[in-house]
């Protein structure tokens, strides 16, 4: 793996302004993804995973505010781009497989035409070449080429997912964000598609961000993992490191909720305690009301970053005990 970073995100803050107050959905997130690397973002429902994805594409609803930070993709800071300039980057350099992938295809157009539309929008190819490219893509995701001229409603769930992946690959982007790409599918299809995505990603030496609340999925396909809690990254490091020696009590709690990576899959919702209210975050460490290791300073002061090589976490009382007080 090279260390040439494709994407560098620095101190990213994106808040939603609502009548009830400000939702700090992305609250100072920093990370980098190298070429050919796959990063996993894991966390409970509502912790801001999809919000990060949409911020990276700058596809935000009207009430969203990009407060601070930079998103440097191939040396270009996306946060400084105008909407027109950004449009040229979308899909061409950074594409996405949506959380609601099943409904991401327009029901009134043929699937092939929807892929060609993306190719033509970026002048990647047009006419006969575009058709040829679609055939290639269908082959890549093992879809029957006769389905190029079919409509989405003629596809099964798994096929639609493959079509969306083919579409995301169309312009050979530097990075693809896959937001819970397989949650709507049954387990066997999920596994198949996940493996194929990983194989394609490796063979094309493409970078990838997988978003999931399923630890097993992340463990299976990601080189690096970031654990999110309440809009913040609380632990980050190589997947093997994080799984073998978690530093943050939250990560550890997640681990113990998953006795074996290959075993039964659990949802993170099985974790005890209430997920935090992003409108009214607890002071100090946001995890303290649910943390078994919480001490007084956790309730009042922001926890420091604990570094172990390229593996870090933010916590007052790291559970790996290497740095213990």
């Amino acid at each position: 793996m090279t260390t040439d970073p494709v994407l560098v995100v620095e101190d990213l803050k994106m808040h939603y302004v609502t009548r009830a107050g400000t939702v700090r959905a992305v609250d100072g997130v920093s990370f980098a993804v190298a070429r050919g690397q796959s990063l996993g973002l894991v966390g409970e429902s509502g912790c801001g995973k999809s919000s990060i994805a949409m911020t990276l594409l700058k596809l935000l609803p009207d009430n969203a505010r990009l407060v601070s930070g930079s998103i440097i993709l191939n040396g270009v800071d996306l946060t400084t781009l105008s909407e027109d300039q950004m449009r040229a980057h979308r899909w061409d350099r950074i594409s996405m497989v949506f959380q609601a992938a099943m409904n991401s295809l327009d029901p009134v157009y043929r699937v092939g035409d929807q892929i060609i539309e993306a190719l033509e929008a970026h002048s990647a190819s047009a006419g006969r070449d575009a058709m040829e490219r679609v055939r290639e893509l269908f082959d890549l995701v093992s879809l029957d080429p006769t389905y190029i001229r079919r409509y989405p409603h003629e596809y099964s769930g798994g096929m639609r997912q493959r079509a969306i992946i083919a579409m995301a690959l169309a312009c050979e982007p530097d990075i693809i964000i896959a937001d819970e790409p397989t949650t709507a599918l049954d387990v066997i299809v999920q596994d198949h598609i996940l493996r194929e995505m990983q194989a394609i990603q490796r063979s094309l030496n493409m970078s990838m961000i997988y978003i999931s609340h399923d630890m097993a999925v992340i463990a299976e396909v990601c080189d690096v993992v970031g654990v999110m809690y309440a809009g913040k990254l609380v632990e980050f490091g190589p997947t093997t490191e994080v799984y073998a020696r978690p530093i943050h009590p939250y990560t550890k709690a997640l681990m113990s909720a998953f006795p074996s990576v290959r075993g039964e899959k659990h949802d993170l919702t099985t974790l005890p305690g209430e997920p935090p209210d992003l409108l009214d975050l607890p002071a100090g460490c946001a995890f303290h009301p649910r943390c078994a290791y919480a001490t007084d300073e956790c309730r009042t002061s922001i926890p420091p970053t604990v570094q172990r090589g390229d593996h870090w976490a933010t916590c007052w009382n790291p559970v790996d005990d290497l740095g213990g007080e």
Binding site: L59, R90, N103, S104, L105, V108, E117, H122
Partner: peptide, 26 residues
């Protein structure tokens, strides 16, 4: 509010194409 509209935007289509080809057509 449909997901395919978000997808059309993510594809980097111009606003006009998103409005006419996808939203209005549906």
């Amino acid at each position: 509010r449909e997901d395919f509209v978000m997808a059309a935007r993510a594809k980097g289509l111009p606003e006009r194409a998103v409005r006419d080809k996808h939203v209005a057509r549906n």
